[in-house]
């Protein structure tokens, strides 16, 4: 099982950062894939929280939406949406929050609101949803985002959420972490090189002096990952 896709590399690398017992606020798509992979491999006690109100969901298949019935049926508790945001997120009960966006800047600030001016956008994006308070309400924010110049920009068109708690950005080329307040390339995935990452970044990307190479997905990780991708996984 030598071949794997960039998305699989991203999901595997994100899942490795989740430890057993961590409580994760999970969005749909790659974050859901990563968190469920962690739960099925090295972190069976990882607690998956979906913003629709399900706490401790254990889905057999990946959901298409954050409110699929299986998330409620397999949850330890199902709470209302106001309770989710007030008691659990604002209450400081969540360790890790996954975020994605259309744009990121070097401080880890994210835009999921508009491309172009707010009043007359070229592209109206879905909007912040849970992101503004996830970004300040969890201990660690993990960002999953494919590397491209239109996404890694020197100035956001709109700041939807702030980057204060962003600890890692996993892309299809490598891993960025904040070093002295600026996202810095600290690892590249097998087959990628730092020049590719520089070329796909809209600011002058800092590269760590001791750049690492990410371990490729193991057979066990890929098997578990592919077993999950039977439905949805549209991201």
């Amino acid at each position: 099982m030598s071949g794997y896709t960039p998305d699989e590399m991203m999901a595997v690398e994100a899942s490795r950062r989740l430890a057993d017992g961590m409580v994760c606020f999970v969005g749909i798509g790659l974050p859901s894939l990563a968190a469920n992979l962690a739960r099925r491999t090295h972190a069976p006690g990882c607690v998956l929280v979906y913003e629709s109100g399900t706490i401790g969901s254990k889905p057999e298949e990946l959901p298409l939406s954050i409110g699929d019935g299986e998330l409620a049926e397999t949850a330890d508790a199902v709470v209302s949406v106001p309770e989710m945001f007030a008691y659990w997120l604002q209450g400081g009960r969540i360790d890790v929050g996954f975020l994605a966006a259309a744009q990121i800047d070097r401080q880890g600030n994210l835009n999921s609101t508009v491309i172009g001016p707010y009043e007359k956008p070229r592209v109206r994006l879905p909007g912040g949803g849970g992101a503004p308070e996830i970004a300040i309400g969890v201990r660690d924010v993990f960002v999953l985002l494919r590397h491209a110049r239109r996404a890694f920009v020197s100035a956001l068109d709109f700041t939807t959420s702030v980057g204060d708690n962003v600890r890692v950005v996993v892309t299809d080329l490598g891993i960025l972490e904040p070093v002295a307040g600026e996202l810095t390339l600290v690892a590249v995935h097998p087959g990628a090189d730092p020049d590719q990452a520089r070329a796909a970044t809209g600011w002058e990307l800092r590269v760590s002096d001791d750049l690492r190479e990410t371990a490729p997905p193991t057979d066990a990780e890929l098997t578990a990952l592919r077993a999950l991708r039977t439905k949805g996984a549209a991201a």
Binding site: E51, V81, P82, M84, F85, A86, L89, Q90, N109, T113, Y118, G128, G129, G130, A131, P132, E133, I136, G137, F158, T159, T160, S161, V162, D164
Partner: peptide
């Protein structure tokens, strides 16, 4: 709004309070 802001606005509406309160909307352009 953000989800947390909308949720707080719903609770305030049901409670017949004029506004909802939360630790949110911090930083950013919203």
């Amino acid at each position: 709004h953000s989800h947390a802001g909308m949720a707080a606005a719903w609770v305030a509406g049901a409670s017949r309070l004029p506004f909802g309160v939360l630790r949110g909307y911090r930083g950013g352009d919203l």
